[in-house]
Computed example of a mutant assay.
Amino acid sequence: MTRIIVFPRLLAGRLARCARGAGAQVADRLIRVMTAAVVDRLDLDALVARVDVNRVADRVDVNRVADRVDVDRVVLRVDVDAVIARVDLVVLTRDVLQAIDLGQMVRDTSGGAAEGTVAALRVRSVRADRVVNHFADRLLHRPGADPQGTEGLGSTP
């Protein structure tokens, strides 16, 4: 027959570990059950009503929250047509035109073109006057009239 040698210290350690494991499981289960029972009996609305929301909001780091926001996902949920429908385009257009001063821009850009046009008209007017004067001089046989009819027709003042 074989004899089993039992070491009391070793056996006690094993029993303690087993008891602690079983005790921990029982304690965990007991805590879960009791916590659920306490929460079930609480009036959460009354508890939340006692919370100072402004004090909680003061403690929130808004920049940290904003860093976590997925802007692309937010934008995908936006109804752009509804946003545009709320914009007063007449007021927006008027404000933009005033801000960029479109009238002044038109005056500035067309001013150069208008000045060039006026200068060209003046030159043509002077040329036309010379042609008419020359024609009249020849017709009336005034002295000094160019018999060839070419004096001053191509020159500019």
Rank of each mutant, 00 (worst) to 15 (best):
R68H: 07
R9V: 00
L44Q: 14
R94S: 07
G111H: 11
A49M: 13
G152W: 05
A128W: 08
A36K: 15
R50D: 09
A119E: 12
D108C: 01
A49G: 14
D108Q: 13
V78D: 08
D95Q: 15
H134C: 01
V48E: 07
A12K: 15
L139V: 10
R3C: 06
Q104K: 14
I4R: 14
T2R: 11
T35S: 14
V53P: 03
I4W: 09
D70S: 05
L89V: 14
V65F: 01
D52I: 00
A49N: 11
V33C: 02
G23K: 00
R86F: 00
A85M: 09
P8W: 08
R17F: 06
L92W: 00
R9K: 03
A27T: 01
T35N: 09
G144Q: 09
V62Q: 04
R50W: 02
R64N: 07
V33I: 12
A49S: 15
G116L: 15
R41Q: 08
A46N: 06
R17L: 05
V78H: 07
I100V: 15
D95M: 13
R68F: 01
L102M: 12
N133K: 02
E151N: 01
A119L: 07
D129H: 07
M1W: 08
R14Q: 10
V39N: 11
A27P: 07
V69M: 10
F135E: 08
V90H: 07
V90S: 07
R32T: 09
P143N: 14
V91G: 03
A145K: 11
V126G: 01
V80C: 04
G116R: 12
V38P: 02
L102H: 06
N54E: 08
M34N: 13
A145Y: 05
Q98A: 08
L140W: 08
N133Y: 03
L89M: 12
L76C: 07
R130Q: 05
L140N: 10
D146Q: 06
T109I: 10
F135Q: 02
A120K: 09
A128R: 13
V96F: 10
D67A: 12
A99I: 03
D129M: 12
R77K: 15
A82L: 12
R55M: 00
A49L: 01
V65K: 03
D40I: 05
T117A: 09
T2H: 11
V53Y: 05
L15H: 11
P157H: 11
V53C: 02
Q25C: 03
V39I: 06
L44A: 14
A37D: 13
L92Y: 13
I4K: 10
V60G: 01
V80R: 15
V87H: 10
D52E: 14
R50P: 11
V118H: 00
R77T: 15
G13W: 06
R124D: 11
R41W: 04
D108N: 15
V39P: 03
I100H: 01
R86I: 02
L140Y: 10
G149R: 02
L153W: 09
V106A: 04
R55C: 05
G21P: 00
L140A: 09
V131Y: 03
L153T: 08
R94Y: 05
R130I: 05
N54W: 06
D67V: 06
L15T: 10
V39S: 10
L153Y: 05
L47V: 04
V48C: 13
A16D: 05
I5Y: 04
V83W: 12
N133L: 09
D61W: 06
D67R: 13
D52A: 04
